[in-house]
Amino acid sequence: MTGVPVPGPGALGAEDVTVVVNGRTLVDRVSLHVAPGEVLALVGPNGAGKSTLLRTFYRVLRPTSGHVLLDGEDVWRMPGKRLAQRLAAVLQETAGDFELTVYEVVAMGRTPHKRAFEGDDAEDRDIIMGSLEELDVAALAQAPFDRLSGGEKQRVLIARALAQRTGTMVLDEPTNHLDLRHQLDALRLVRRVGVTAVIALHDLNLAASFCDRICVLDGGRVVATGTPQAVLTRDLLAEVYRVEAEVSRHPGTGIPQITVVPDARRDGRPVERG
């Protein structure tokens, strides 16, 4: 990748984090530690607390109790600019419409590294264009962001986070709206740049393929944490997702592969009678 290298990654963690909103507990005493350079997937059914937990990492939502730590320092005690120099985020609600070009949106990622009203220098431009190229949107640099497709917008927002050049990233469903090729490209990129990353994913097969560990949430609580091989079992999928699934191993990599077994009675298909 062009431009300066990504800074060394830091350790990210949640210490007994609870989030209560309008009397409802969305995250319940979650403790989670991500080592420097590790990629961890947050998985679980809708409403499990994945997005809520990620928002506490990036200071969008303050924990009711507990602490979020970056290299041992509480993120809520850090100046906002310094946090933005060290941690980047791709959150679902950031996918709104900006009256900016694609280039200008990605250039926003350089803001934490600049003084007020300071323009882009040659290094900034190199980083911005390199990030656009990595996400296959360089040809759209001068296009209005608000006229892009959902998948194109998502790639631009990932490019913006990449241009921020932090050592740690949190990504909330970064593969949403992306076709299969760009899903793979985005997750390969996170691994290649070597950042510490926490990624909320719905696709368990992608989580198993690209993440070092998986943390399963259900009802705001941690159900299991470990390697994909240890966590993704038939029993856990039945307990958490309420589905019957077969878990096999890829013959070359040993990575778990999950196939949901349809229930004819529930899925509306004709039931064969003996």
Rank of each mutant, 00 (worst) to 15 (best):
A141G: 07
V90D: 09
A186V: 11
A230N: 12
A161F: 09
A186M: 04
V6F: 13
L12H: 08
L204F: 02
V4H: 08
A95S: 13
H177L: 09
V216G: 03
T56L: 06
A116V: 14
P270N: 08
A238K: 14
E38D: 07
R82V: 15
E123P: 01
D203W: 05
L187Q: 12
T227A: 11
V195D: 07
R234D: 02
A107C: 03
L178F: 06
W76L: 11
R221P: 00
V43A: 12
R249T: 13
T166D: 02
D126S: 03
T56N: 06
A163F: 06
E73Y: 00
T175M: 05
V243H: 05
E173F: 02
S131Y: 06
T225M: 13
E133H: 05
M78R: 14
L157Q: 03
V222S: 03
R181L: 14
D121T: 02
P144W: 06
R249I: 02
R192W: 06
S149D: 05
G219T: 05
A197K: 02
R192S: 15
L61Y: 09
L180H: 08
Q257H: 14
A245P: 04
T18R: 05
R59Q: 06
A84K: 15
H182C: 13
C215A: 15
S51P: 13
R24S: 13
H33G: 11
G72P: 07
A11G: 14
V102A: 07
I258S: 00
T25L: 04
D267S: 15
P262G: 09
E173C: 08
E134P: 00
A41C: 11
L204S: 02
E93D: 15
A139D: 14
L135E: 06
P79H: 10
N176H: 09
L187S: 05
V68Y: 04
T175V: 15
Q154E: 04
P256W: 00
L135Q: 04
I128L: 02
V190M: 04
H250G: 00
P5C: 05
G80N: 03
D71Y: 01
D218L: 02
V39G: 01
